[in-house]
Amino acid sequence: MVANINEIQSAAAALLNEGKVKLVLGYRVRGNDRVPAFVTQADQVGCLAYDSACTQNLAAYLRKGEVRSRMPLAVVARPEVMRSLMLLTAESQIAEGQVTVLAVDEQGFHGVLDLAGTAKLLNEQYARIAPDSSLMEQLAKIEAMTPQERSAFWSEQFEPCTRCYACRAACPGCFCERCIVEMNTPQWISTAAESHGNFAWHMIRAFHQAGRCVECGACQDACPQGIPLMLLNHFIAREVEREFDARNGYDPQAEPVIGSWKQDDKQEYIR
């Protein structure tokens, strides 16, 4: 547990007591697990906990009707979750005044912020989040493969996918009311949990995250089958940064990388 957990609890209690929020979204301890806590009364804040095992991205709840109806709310947010909030702001899913941030990282609590303050903190303190080194090593191995080997690698990884869509449920960026996999006229993606449908699902989801994924890791953590989704996400995020000089989830006014265009885009076809 972070050392100053009491400060998170008192900040949450103050927000609730002052009527600034109706709900605090945080974490609590259940056995060996860290699970979400939905705190609506100041006298319940004692259950709030935070440590590095709190990997779920609580920003995903901001698309759930039963949670949205309790706005304004506060959310315990580590840097990746803050980045999700920036993405959701940029994509008009939340607005200033609806969400208050209880900023945390592995060192502890860093205060109560509005979305503008969160943007400032992110860019000042967390502008560079070093990617996981083991992820980089695995990615290097995959990139060294021949296309055939790479295809075989991913088919093997996607094979256990049951299409439970836990990845989608865990992702704050997956807020579409009707996901492309649920569109059936025409059926874009096979819904059978089999090789080609699984391949199509994960690839298309990865592409829909291009310029959007904040690399929080929640999808991979949520996957019951242990599919290494972050390999895909990190690869795409890196390409987006290289091609568009964009890092996702830092600018609450950012235009979507894939969904916008400029006169001076370097590709000929766009003009």
Binding site: F38, A60, E66, V67, T162, C164, Y165, A166, A170, P224
Partner: peptide, 17 residues
Amino acid sequence: WKELSLACMGCGACAYT
């Protein structure tokens, strides 16, 4: 039920396992 289900995000992980 509303309180008990607040954390559920509506995937099929529980049903499929």
